[in-house]
């Protein structure tokens, strides 16, 4: 049974059809990266999965349970989500308060709340900042607080909606590192990104275009397929074009490609 399953889901904003007849399933423990051009419906997809938006047609299942207005609160406990803007998801006045926010909502008892705050702040390396206010934190640190806050609720899936796109390179690396650690702990991950480096690390890449799944496959399959990349207006086209041309000219070797991948992975 897939952990998250969408069946023929359609969603329309008053002015725009954002998701159209989309079907997608995500297995437990899998890392799925969603890529696609601006306005292709990536954020809408994430909001549908955690029930912030309700599809006009189609069904969404989380661990076999259908997402309905009645089940939405229970389903949300299984899913943590990190949004793009670090400032607009910081609810507490201090780091400690912010991590506690979700726990308070889940009515976690006081003592347990304290241990969970300590555990997840330590995991996100934010222990020394527990009493700091958000205005004293960098963007990357705020995102780590958001991750700690979500993890403290002990979800089974983490969704990242362009969580690194507003960060400086250092913050981006820190957040990416956090994703890798989650991965190592077998948390199911759904990362929405423009950053191909993020997509490269996933098990599977889903390309979204105009509210539909254009293609899905391993990062290697997708990111070396120039037709898909062109159609979805994705970056990294030039180096890959170069690679293809070199192949045509017989310059390329497996070794050379491997080197390129190595390079891409250490970017």
């Amino acid at each position: 049974m897939p952990f998250i399953e969408l069946k023929n889901v359609s969603f329309k904003y008053p002015s725009k059809q954002a998701i159209e007849q989309l079907s997608l399933s995500i297995e437990k423990g899998e890392w799925v990266a969603v890529v696609g051009p601006n306005g292709s419906g990536k954020s809408t997809l994430a909001k549908l999965i955690i029930g912030l938006l309700t599809p006009q047609s189609g069904e969404i299942f989380v661990e076999g349970e259908k997402l309905t207005p009645e089940s939405v609160n229970e389903v949300r406990q299984k899913i943590g989500i990190i949004f793009q803007n670090p400032d607009n998801q910081f609810v507490g006045v201090t780091v400690r308060d912010d991590i506690a926010f979700g726990l308070e909502n889940l009515q976690v008892p006081y003592q347990e709340m304290l241990t969970r705050i300590d555990t997840y702040a330590a995991q996100m390396k934010m222990t020394e900042f527990l009493d700091k206010e958000p205005s004293n934190l960098s963007g990357g640190q705020k995102q780590r607080v958001a991750i700690a806050g979500a993890l403290a609720m002990q979800p089974e899936v983490m969704i990242f909606d362009e969580a690194t796109s507003m960060l400086d390179p250092k913050g981006r690396l820190e957040t990416l590192q956090a994703m890798r650690e989650l991965r190592a702990q077998k948390t199911t991950l759904l990362t929405i990104t423009h950053d191909l480096k993020e997509a490269l690390q996933a098990d599977r890449v889903v390309v979204l275009n105009e509210g539909q799944v254009l293609a899905t496959g391993t990062p290697r399959e997708i990111l070396t397929n120039i037709d898909i990349l062109t159609e979805a207006k994705l970056a990294l086209i030039e180096p890959l074009e170069l690679l293809n041309k070199m192949e045509e000219a017989g310059i390329s070797s497996q070794e050379w490609e491997a080197k390129l991948w190595q390079f891409a992975l250490t970017l």
Binding site: Q77, N85, F101, N105
Partner: peptide
């Protein structure tokens, strides 16, 4: 708007 989404996503009712 974004804050309300983030709060709801963290099970605030």
């Amino acid at each position: 708007d974004e804050l309300a989404n983030a709060m709801e996503a963290r099970c605030f009712v």
